[in-house]
């Protein structure tokens, strides 16, 4: 459930397809995931999970795997 929600956020904010959202996908590794898209991703995640991310966590969120790990810190179960 949470995983699906998170993937949807990636798909919509970065404009990529679901298959592309794999654990190893990294920030700035594809043109679609630049700093502006990153902030759109953050906005999408905050809205979807009703949380407020710390700036450190936003900067840390450098891959899909990392995103899942950080979201867990905010009591989101996967």
């Amino acid at each position: 459930m949470s995983n699906k929600k998170m993937i949807t956020c990636f798909v919509e904010a970065l404009g990529i397809s679901e298959e592309d959202v794999v654990n190893t996908l990294e920030y700035n590794s594809i043109p679609q995931w630049d700093s502006v898209a990153h902030m759109q991703l953050i906005a999408a995640l905050e809205e979807a999970f009703d949380i407020m991310l710390d700036t450190d966590d936003i900067i840390d969120m450098s891959s899909v795997a990392k995103a899942r790990q950080i979201l867990q810190k905010y009591d989101i179960g996967f």
């Binding site: 700093s35 502006v36 990153h38 902030m39 700036t55 936003i58 900067i59």
Partner: peptide, 13 residues
């Protein structure tokens, strides 16, 4: 401030 420092966006969306 988050948009500004992380993505250099100076105006709120």
């Amino acid at each position: 401030s988050r948009l500004y420092y992380i993505a250099d966006m100076k105006l709120h969306q």
